[in-house]
Design a protein around this nucleic acid. Structure first.
Lengths: 213, 213
DNA sequence: TTGTATCTGTGAAATAAATCACGGATATAT
DNA sequence: ATATATCCGTGATTTATTTCACAGATACAA
C-alpha cells in the first residue's frame, strides 16, 4: 500500500482518539471532531479515511468501533508487537514501566544497559540484560522494535547493534542523530528539537500543527 | 516570516547537528552530511538554508559556527527560554533533571504536581509547587513553555490552566489529545502514536523519515 | 411530511514541497 | 598549471498534499 506519510501519522493519532472514544462508549464520531482532536481539518480527515477505504454514515460520522477495527486491521495496529529499551537511565526506566504501552499493543519485553550496577538496582518485572546480550535476546524473543534511551554519543553504536540483532524499527529518544539503512523504520523523538520547533514557531507562526514526529 | 512547517522542523534538527559539530570542532559541513544526519536529501537542505538567507562556500559547505549563529538568530533559537513541567511522575521527574535542556537553551524553572506527597519526596534543585500555584508562578517567573507529563484524563485541564497562566507553547507527553486555541503553539509527543507510526510503516513503507513530531 | 441542517465522499483546483538540473566556484590532486 | 571532483544556489519541473465545492444521504425538528 502506498499512503502519504502525513496520512500515516494522522491515522495513528486518530487510532488513539478512537481508543478513548471506545472506552467512553461513544458510538459515532465525525471527521470534524477527529480533526479538532488531532489538529487538522475535516477535509483532510475524510481524505485520510477514504484512502484507507473505510466509509462512514451520512449525518452521523464514522462508527467508532468499526473505524477502529478497520484502521487497526489495515495498518496492523491491532497486532501485538514486542519492543525493548536500551539505556536504563531515568527516562529508560520510566518507559520500562509505562503501563500505557502494553494496553496499546506494544509490549516491552526487555531492557538493556551496560552498567551492572543499574541492572542490579532496577526494580521491575521486566527482564533486564547487559548490552552484550542484545543480539541473543532480541532474536530469542523476536523483538521488532528498539527504543533508544542512552545518553548521546553512543546512540549510533546502540542503533547499529539493534539493527544487527534484527529489529525493524527504532524509536530514538537520545539527542544524537542516528543514521540507519533505509529498510529500517526510524523515528527521532529528540526533546530539544521538539522544544525548538515550538520556539521557532513563536517567530514564524503558521497555524498547522502537523509535525510528523 | 513565512516558512514551511517542514523546513522549521528540519532547521531545528539541523541546529542540533550543528551544536554537536561545533563541540567536535568541525569547521564546515556539507548539505549532504546534514541531509544524511536528519534523513532527507541535500537538495532539501540547501533549499531550507537558502530560505533562511544563509549562504555557504563552494566545495566546502557551510561554516558550522556561522550557520549555527545565523539559524539561531533568525529563529531565535539562541534565546534562553523558561519552561515548566506539570505532572511529576516518573517521566516528569526524569525531564525535570534532563541536563540537556539547559545546555540547549531551555531552562526548567518549575515543576508542578497535585500530590503533596510527591512534592515532598522529590529530590531536585528545581522548585516544585502545587498545581494551584501555577498561575502565580508562571506569571512571576515569566515562563513561556509548558511541558505536560500528567497521566491522561486531566491533560486538557492542565493545558487550559497553563494557557490561562500565560504560556505560549505546550509540549504534551500525555496520551490524551488536547485542544488549544490557535495562537498557542502546541506539539504532541505521544509515545504510543510514535510507535504506531513506526509499526504502520512496516506495512506502508515509504522511505522518507520526516514526521513533524 | 416537509424542510433543514449536517455529514460523508470525491473529483477538481489550488498550494505546498521536493527534485531535478545545471551554472558557477574552488579545493585538491597530478 | 590544468584537470577534476565537489559543493552551493536556484530557477524550473514534478510530485504530493491540502483545500474547495458540491452532490448525495439522512437524522431531526416542526
Amino acid at each position: 500500500m502506498d499512503l502519504p506519510n502525513n496520512t500515516i501519522d494522522r491515522v495513528c493519532r486518530i487510532f488513539g482518539c478512537l481508543e478513548s472514544l471506545e472506552e467512553r462508549q461513544v458510538d459515532f464520531v465525525s471527521s470534524k471532531d477527529l480533526a479538532q482532536a488531532i489538529g487538522t481539518t475535516n477535509d483532510t480527515i475524510r481524505k485520510d479515511i477514504s484512502l484507507l477505504g473505510v466509509t462512514g454514515y451520512t449525518r452521523k460520522g464514522y462508527s467508532v468501533v468499526s473505524l477502529k477495527k478497520e484502521l487497526g486491521q489495515t495498518l496492523k495496529l491491532d497486532k501485538k508487537r514486542k519492543a525493548c529499551i536500551v539505556g536504563l537511565g531515568r527516562l529508560g526506566t520510566a518507559l520500562l514501566d509505562y503501563e500505557r504501552f502494553k494496553q496499546d499493543g506494544f509490549e516491552i519485553v526487555a531492557g538493556f544497559d551496560n552498567s551492572i550496577n543499574k541492572l542490579e538496582r532496577i526494580k521491575t518485572h521486566i527482564d533486564v540484560f547487559a548490552i552484550s546480550e542484545m543480539e541473543n535476546i532480541i532474536a530469542q524473543k523476536s523483538i521488532e522494535l528498539g527504543i533508544i534511551t542512552v545518553p548521546a554519543n553512543n546512540a549510533q553504536e546502540v542503533a547499529d547493534e539493534l539493527i544487527k540483532a534484527g529489529v525493524s524499527g527504532i524509536l530514538n529518544f537520545s539527542p544524537e542523530k542516528i543514521v540507519v539503512p533505509k529498510e529500517i523504520i526510524y523515528l527521532d523523538m529528540d526533546f530539544t528539537s521538539a522544544l525548538r520547533f515550538i520556539a521557532a514557531r513563536f517567530i514564524t507562526n503558521k497555524l498547522r500543527k502537523s509535525r510528523v514526529a
